[in-house]
């Protein structure tokens, strides 16, 4: 009996955490998403909100755009993050290894808001880069680099980099140097060793990094809002505006569940495509 009590006490924080902060709000949200306003302060059960999502081209288009851009941001982060992780895990030694890792971590000591403002200061028309280009004679008038998809992509990649580098570095570190050397010794060149040995070994790290970065990008609100241009619409902005600006919690909640469903679907697809399982990637990656 006392053993069971101890078990429940140990489990209590987790159950409270899951129950109070995740499950109960989600159930409430699900209920909210399944009703529609019929008059002032009056609601009736309805699937209208989900219907709106699938019939309004604007919502579907915004969603597709958000998903595609997030996938793109994930790929770019992977392409930039892989060599960095490889360098940290396999080439750098001792202190330089630690300090490189720290360098990836430092941006996260300041808030996301400050980091994003940093990019605004750099990229704006009267910003640092524009002024430097003019000073160097490479541009004869101010250059606007802010308020477009490229700036937004830059912000997304920058924000996500650490979450790609950490799992990648961890999996790459677990690859024995001798295995790479054996790859060369048996006739492989840089490309084939990368393709047949390094990447297959790093696959759990690649997938877990990609899942985290994809989720972060998909759920990012600040970066698209601040760095994106006048055409840029991010799905989280739609959710925010339904909840906060329009007071339309019903549609906002439905959007939230559509986002949850679609991102789960895409992650499942990524796992299937790479032949990984969630246990393996999350177990090894983190």
């Amino acid at each position: 009996m006392t053993r069971r009590l101890g078990f429940f006490l140990l489990l209590a924080p987790l159950v409270l955490w899951l129950g109070l902060l995740i499950i109960i709000p989600h159930i409430d949200m699900a209920l909210v998403s399944l009703r529609a306003r019929t008059g002032p302060g009056e609601y009736a059960p309805s699937l209208q909100n989900y219907g709106d999502f699938f019939t309004q081209p604007l919502y579907l288009m915004t969603f597709a755009r958000t998903a595609i851009m997030s996938v793109l941001a994930t790929l770019i982060t992977l392409i930039i993050g892989f060599p960095i992780s490889y360098y940290i895990a396999k080439i750098a030694r001792g202190r330089s290894q630690a300090s490189l890792f720290l360098l990836c971590l430092i941006p996260f000591w300041v808030s996301e808001l400050v980091r994003t403002f940093g990019w605004i200061i750099l990229l704006r028309e009267t910003g640092v880069i524009s002024n430097m280009l003019q000073w160097a004679g490479l541009a004869d008038q101010p250059v606007e680099m802010l308020y477009n998809d490229a700036a937004m992509m830059l912000g997304l990649v920058y924000t996500s980099m650490l979450f790609m580098v950490v799992p990648l570095t961890t999996t790459l570190e677990s690859l024995d140097d001798a295995v790479i050397e054996a790859g060369y010794d048996l006739g492989g060149n840089g490309f084939s060793v990368l393709r047949e040995i390094v990447i297959p070994h790093a696959m759990p790290g690649i997938v877990s990094g990609c899942i985290v970065v994809f989720m972060l990008s998909l759920g990012n609100y600040l970066t698209p809002t601040m760095l994106g241009g006048k055409d840029s619409l991010w799905f989280t902005q739609l959710i925010y505006s339904q909840f906060i600006v329009r007071f339309n919690w019903e549609l906002g909640a439905a959007f939230g569940f559509c986002l949850l469903g679609a991102s789960s679907l895409i992650v499942w697809g990524m796992l299937r495509l790479s032949g990984q399982t969630l246990e393996r990637t999350m177990g090894e990656g983190a």
Partner: peptide
């Protein structure tokens, strides 16, 4: 009126998304 704000919202979304 609440209804007015709702249709305004849709207009604003469409403007933002237009290009």
């Amino acid at each position: 009126p609440a209804e007015i704000e709702r249709i305004e919202g849709e207009t604003l979304d469409r403007v933002q998304a237009a290009s």
